[in-house]
Amino acid sequence: MTHFGYTLMTEQSGPLALVRDAVAAEEVGFDFAVCSDHFSPWLASQGHAPNAWALLGAIAQATERLGLCSFVTCPTMRYHPAIVAQQAATVQILAQGRFTLGLGSGENLNEHIVTGAGWPNVRRRQAMLGEAIKIIRGLLAGESVDHHGEHFQVDQARLWDLPEAPVALAVAMSGAGGVDRFGTAADHLIAVKPDRELVQSWREARQAVGLSEGGRVIGQLPVCWDPDRDNAIQRAHRQFRWFGGGWAVNAELPTPAAFAAATRYVRPADVAEAIACGPDLAPIVDAVGAYLDAGFTDVALIQIGGPSQEAFLKEAAEPLLAALRGAAA
């Protein structure tokens, strides 16, 4: 069964609005919500960056059945992995088993400004993530963790409040190297593109070591629904033109100003070609179809634009979900 999610973009809205949106998303029938975990917006025109973990705790208490996932948390620089484990355990208790910890190697934009330590290359970032996952798994398993590694030191750490339901780990991967390093460390796969080969290689890596075939494959894509297509295109261009750079580029840019400069030649027409914009639901269903064909089990939608959320959730979400579930069936 395919599950359809709603994205809580901490870059687009403030914390009170995001809690209201999560409640509304549950009411209209979304299966889960993913929450970005950023210190800065991608572009200054987005204008927000509340703390994701305070937000997840509030949403866990404000909702009843909506699945929750950090999408994604970097557990290596802005947060120490022991703190990520503690945050995840607490949110899982508050959510009563509805939370999944999404992890990734992070972006320069959100990490370097906190530690002041500079931004490591991708090989080092992945090594740090692998070490962090080991620490997080040990703590979430209730172990007393002593770890003296290349990147992290942990002395006799233990989580004193553990949830009854284990916290599943979803890890972002984008290619064969990611699968080789993290494929068997992840309960679920997060991927940014509808890549059938990536999904298949991850499933094969799990099968090779006797892991369950039931892991989820979680994807996400932006849409910009609006009764007026021109308004939708302009809003998508203003807030989301950064998306076209791809993660290999986006992970390296250090500030919103850098994202603005890197995308200054992206035209509204370019954005409209890449993102379904306007009132027609069929292009959104078609775009999601690529993920379904690639073997994704969960797809979260990003409705671009903070002020547009209420209209999208009231007017478009229910018929869109019906169309998506029909396509999945």
Results as ranks from 00 to 15, higher is better:
3 H>L: 12
11 E>T: 07
14 G>A: 11
18 L>A: 12
25 A>W: 11
27 E>Q: 13
27 E>R: 14
30 F>L: 05
34 V>T: 15
36 S>V: 09
41 P>S: 08
47 G>N: 09
48 H>T: 01
54 A>E: 12
59 I>E: 11
61 Q>T: 03
61 Q>F: 00
62 A>F: 03
64 E>M: 00
64 E>Y: 02
72 V>D: 02
74 C>Y: 02
76 T>F: 01
76 T>H: 00
76 T>E: 00
81 P>A: 11
81 P>D: 10
82 A>L: 02
82 A>N: 09
85 A>K: 06
87 Q>L: 15
109 L>Q: 05
114 V>S: 09
114 V>M: 09
129 L>G: 01
137 R>I: 04
142 G>H: 08
144 S>M: 08
144 S>A: 03
144 S>F: 00
146 D>I: 02
148 H>Q: 10
151 H>C: 10
152 F>T: 04
167 V>D: 01
169 L>Y: 01
173 M>D: 01
174 S>M: 08
179 V>W: 02
181 R>M: 08
182 F>V: 02
184 T>A: 04
187 D>M: 04
197 E>W: 02
198 L>I: 09
200 Q>R: 13
204 E>H: 05
205 A>K: 05
205 A>C: 11
207 Q>E: 15
211 L>A: 06
216 R>T: 05
218 I>Q: 00
223 V>D: 01
225 W>Q: 07
228 D>S: 09
237 H>Q: 06
245 G>L: 15
246 G>V: 11
259 F>D: 10
260 A>G: 11
264 R>W: 02
279 P>G: 10
280 D>L: 11
282 A>K: 10
297 T>P: 01
300 A>I: 06
304 I>V: 14
308 S>N: 15
308 S>F: 12
311 A>S: 06
317 A>I: 11
325 R>M: 11
328 A>M: 03
